[in-house]
């Protein structure tokens, strides 16, 4: 009750509880323990590059596997093991590295069930870190979840805080479909209330973060807290925002989004991904098609620019959508007149 832990701790606790609960849950990835093969050093030296898997190695002998830097092989191995009764959780250190293992994810895991006539079950989770903000530059900062979202056969979860992280990861591990689990690297130290007991958050149910009648703000992952900050400030100027966190981009809770827009008549989507073919464009198209009659203003999308993620803090801070941009977008749709 009222226990507060970090996003990182929530993920670690989830892995621990699911590994305790189910022998078939295994964890693998680069330095998921760390120190493998070192003649003098400590095994479990790292527990993953950001410490999410720390401590699991010794508690679960043989079930936390360090891998060579060889994403195709170990992501593929996780998928193969999933077809044979294991529930692997593979860590793709940065989502940017999908480039060197994408075939195994989108041609293999995603397609097995359909391609094999509904007879394959591939309960694999690929945990991966995304997002800008750590001055990690163009190849370690991207928000590539729209690519996974577009692929039938994959589910995509994007926890926005520690509570969501635990419930969504528990669901991901117990889910019988392949899940791409996107963790924002700037959220690992965020703190929030998390029950000690295990629980699941079903996929495809948006969280209504706050209620308001003036404008719907749909925000993804880390952008949920940005949108909430914006909504707090908007409220002080008399604009009440309905802030929605879809939680999963595939499946997407279209009903909650449409219901909200039918009430507010105005939509702002906040998506850290680059602006072409991202989740914001997807949601905007959905609303334009399904709730056109409710719209009282054009839809606004607050996204990154169509550029790689820059390195310099001066540039990166401009790159990432912030609360002020969300406020400006919300005000522009609220004040919009034909």
């Amino acid at each position: 009750m009222a226990r507060e832990i970090s996003y990182r701790e929530a993920l670690n606790e989830t892995l621990r509880q699911e590994m305790e609960r189910d022998q078939s849950v295994i964890v693998m990835g680069e330095d998921n323990s760390g120190g493998a093969g070192s003649p003098a050093g400590e095994q479990d030296a790292w527990g993953g590059v950001l410490g999410v898997t720390k401590g699991l190695y010794h508690q679960f002998p043989g079930r936390v596997l360090d891998t060579p830097i060889s994403e195709s092989a170990f992501v593929g191995a996780a998928i193969g093991a999933a077809t044979r009764g294991q529930r692997p959780v593979a860590e793709l250190m940065f989502i940017d590295f999908m480039g060197v293992c994408f075939d195994q994810i989108f041609n293999q895991a995603a397609k097995f069930r359909y391609m094999f006539g509904g007879k394959a079950v591939t309960p694999v989770v690929i945990r991966t870190m995304y997002g800008a903000g750590l001055r990690a530059a163009a190849q370690h900062s991207q928000s590539l979840y729209p690519l996974f979202t577009s692929i039938p056969g994959l589910k995509v979860a994007m926890p926005s805080n520690p509570y969501e992280a635990k419930g969504l990861l528990t669901q991901a591990i117990r889910d019988d479909d392949p899940v791409i689990f996107c963790e924002h690297k700037a959220l690992y130290d965020s703190i929030g209330e998390v029950p000690e007991e295990s629980y699941t958050i079903p996929f495809g149910e948006a969280n209504i973060v706050r209620e308001g009648d003036d404008v719907t703000i749909v925000a993804l992952g880390r952008m949920v807290s940005v949108a909430s900050e914006a909504a707090d400030q908007l409220a002080s100027s008399g604009v009440q925002a309905d802030v929605l966190d879809p939680r999963t981009t595939s499946p997407l809770d279209t009903d909650t989004i449409l219901e909200s827009v039918e009430n507010t008549g105005r939509l702002v989507v906040v998506d850290e991904a680059t602006p072409r073919c991202n989740v914001a464009t997807d949601i905007s198209a959905l609303v334009a098609k399904e709730a056109f009659g409710s719209l009282r203003a054009p839809i606004e999308m607050v996204t990154a620019p169509h550029t790689p993620v820059p390195f310099s803090d001066a540039l990166e801070d401009m790159y990432i959508p912030d609360a002020q941009r969300v406020i400006n977008a919300a005000k522009s749709v609220v004040e919009w007149e034909r």
């Binding site: 509570y163 419930g167 007991e197 295990s198 629980y199 699941t200 958050i201 079903p202 969280n207 209620e211």
Partner: peptide
């Protein structure tokens, strides 16, 4: 309220 429903769902989603 939505908050009550959310809190109850948080409870209902606990294992067991």
């Amino acid at each position: 309220t939505r908050q009550l429903a959310d809190d109850l769902m948080k409870y209902k989603r606990l294992d067991g």
